[in-house]
């Protein structure tokens, strides 16, 4: 579903990604872990066609970037720590706007379903600026899946959420991923990553230094694996 080969990203003289090789099978949930500044967000932005690779090849859902970026974007949902929502529009208006941008024709029924999925149907007519951070993040997930994408990218979705909001987001995440979508999530929260993901990749100083599946981790735990990968 995702195939990345020898990906390099430079900003001026600074090299952020130094030849990343990465692939994800359909239906996999990959947690991309690493310290601050390791290049996780840059990597996800390249997958989302928001940034252009300096070198290397990137294929998402059968399309190559940057040449077929519109086709890739149609198959992709992105959730970041920012909700990408307009505070002066209602929840319904926000989803309506994104549905129109994705060319969805039956947007009313789709919006109702998505709002029910993220548990915000009762707030559909309320302005987003009146929502708590956790509610905004749930609506952001609704926005990201409005077009039923095959691949969903989560970039630090738990940032700024309290414990209750994080648990509610867990539920929504499970709901979204239960339908067999391919997911890549960056996170600092090892507990949540361990609970949700089926594979763990460690990105450190611009390269992937270790990979393990959930089965392989049964012998150890994610924290030990992470620490070992960082030492190496």
């Amino acid at each position: 579903m995702i195939e990345v080969k020898k990906l390099v990203k430079r900003f001026g003289l600074k090299t952020i990604l130094r030849g990343v090789d990465f692939s994800v099978e359909p239906g996999e949930f990959v947690a991309l872990l690493g310290p601050n500044g390791s290049g996780k967000t840059t990597f996800l932005r390249i997958l989302a066609s928001l940034s252009r690779a300096s070198m290397g090849s990137v294929n998402v859902a059968g399309y190559s970037l940057p040449n077929e970026s519109a086709q890739v974007r149609a198959k992709l949902g992105v959730v970041t720590h920012m909700p990408l929502l307009y505070p002066d529009l209602t929840a319904e208006e926000n989803l309506q706007f994104y549905a129109r941008m994705y060319g969805i024709t039956n947007h009313q029924s789709r919006i109702t379903q998505v709002l029910e999925m993220v548990g915000l149907e009762y707030r559909r007519k309320d302005l987003v600026r009146t929502f708590s951070r956790g509610m905004q993040q749930r609506l952001a997930i609704g926005r990201a899946v409005i077009h039923d994408p095959e691949v969903i990218l989560f970039d630090e979705p738990y940032t700024g959420l309290d414990q209750d909001a994080s648990e509610m987001l867990d539920d929504v995440l499970r709901t979204v991923t239960a339908t067999g979508r391919t997911v890549v999530m960056t996170s600092h929260d090892l507990a949540r990553a361990e609970d949700l993901a089926t594979r763990f990749d460690i990105l450190s100083r611009g390269v992937i230094t270790a990979t393990a599946t959930q089965k392989e981790l049964k012998k150890t735990n994610l924290l030990t694996f992470y620490k070992q990968a960082m030492v190496e």
Binding site: R73, V78, Y98, M101
Partner: peptide, 8 residues
Amino acid sequence: DGLLLAPV
């Protein structure tokens, strides 16, 4: 970013 992610 939300706008740029739209397939248009």
